[in-house]
């Protein structure tokens, strides 16, 4: 009794997170792993231990195809987010003179996160549609004569929408990384005769790499698991891996195959996270 009472704070501090992890992470993952070895059998599926589901994933070309497409889209989203976010964050940290304006602009990037994801994806439909805002604008300035159907219901629309939705996750870590770089390092580099470009290449960029890696990881993983954008703005060639998993759990009633797909996806995401983690550490130890 007294031992428990004495240790109670410790038990609580350690116990709650451990219980949380066990209940909400290890247990669900365990269930998914178990299902992934089961066997599909009408009307549902039966317990078994076999690797048929995994073999299907790697031998049936449809899964490999969707997997590669998801990889491509996620990488494109990460690159597009990076190309937009880095100059913006750089400007905010080093060039924006007014602190108020800086805070304001930073908040403007974060603010869309408070708007429903679904709504933001849906809005792109009205922008990119055949009779949408973009087409009306291009026609009004005389750039095109008739509405183009090239903007919506294809992979381009998915990359645009996902980039828009996930870009805050690229801006935030890069901004934080740039903010941490002492300005006297750039000054020292200039004193030693480096031009602004070379200072950027040799000082600022390497020091901000951990932020870039974090941004890439976040945007990549979020896009990799997305299934709303293909549904709303994707075309017939827009099926992503998460859509296939949803179909297996729903229409196909094949939870074992869906679980196996989820496990493969989890492994990919964990690999990326640990790679990026390693990069960040390297960046930190190598940088300073």
């Amino acid at each position: 009794m007294s031992i428990l009472r004495r240790n109670l704070p410790g038990v609580l501090v350690m116990g709650i997170p451990v219980l949380w992890i066990a209940l909400f992470m290890l247990l669900p993952y365990g269930i998914i792993v178990t299902y992934s070895f089961w066997l599909k059998k009408y009307p549902t599926f039966i317990p078994a231990f076999q690797f048929g589901n995994y073999i299907t994933i790697f031998t049936d070309p449809q899964y490999v195809l969707v997997f590669l497409r998801t990889l491509k889209i996620s990488i494109l989203v990460s690159i597009a987010s990076f190309l937009l976010a880095y100059p913006f964050a750089y400007w905010l940290v080093f060039r924006c003179r007014s602190a108020a304006l800086r805070t304001w602009l930073y908040m403007a990037v974060i603010a869309p996160l408070w708007v429903s994801y679904l709504l933001r994806a849906y809005i792109w439909k009205t922008i990119l549609g055949t009779e949408g805002v973009l087409n009306s604008f291009l026609m009004s300035i005389g750039l095109i004569d008739e509405p183009s159907s090239l903007f919506l219901y294809n992979q381009f629309a998915m990359v645009v929408t996902l980039t828009y939705i996930f870009i805050p996750f690229m801006v935030m870590p890069i901004y934080t990384a740039l903010e941490k770089i002492p300005t006297n390092l750039t000054e020292a580099s200039a004193d030693l005769g480096m031009g602004p470009w070379r200072s950027f290449w040799h000082v600022t960029l390497p020091l901000s790499l951990p932020g870039v890696a974090a941004g890439f990881t976040l945007t990549f993983c979020l896009s990799f698991g997305d299934f709303i954008a293909p549904f709303l703005v994707g075309g017939p060639d827009g099926n992503l891996i998460a859509n296939v998993i949803a179909t297996q759990f729903g229409a196909a009633l094949n939870w074992p195959l869906g679980s196996a797909l989820a496990i493969v996806m989890l492994i990919v995401v964990l690999t990326i996270v640990s790679l990026s983690d390693r990069m960040e550490r390297k960046g930190l130890s190598g940088g300073i």
């Binding site: 049936d60 195809l65 017939p236 060639d237 179909t247 229409a251 094949n254």
Partner: peptide, 18 residues
């Protein structure tokens, strides 16, 4: 479709995967 259900859905899924 009973036990043919899977063949039908699989064919359709594979069209969508293309």
């Amino acid at each position: 479709l009973a036990d043919r259900f899977e063949v039908y859905t699989n064919a359709w899924n594979s069209v969508k995967a293309q």
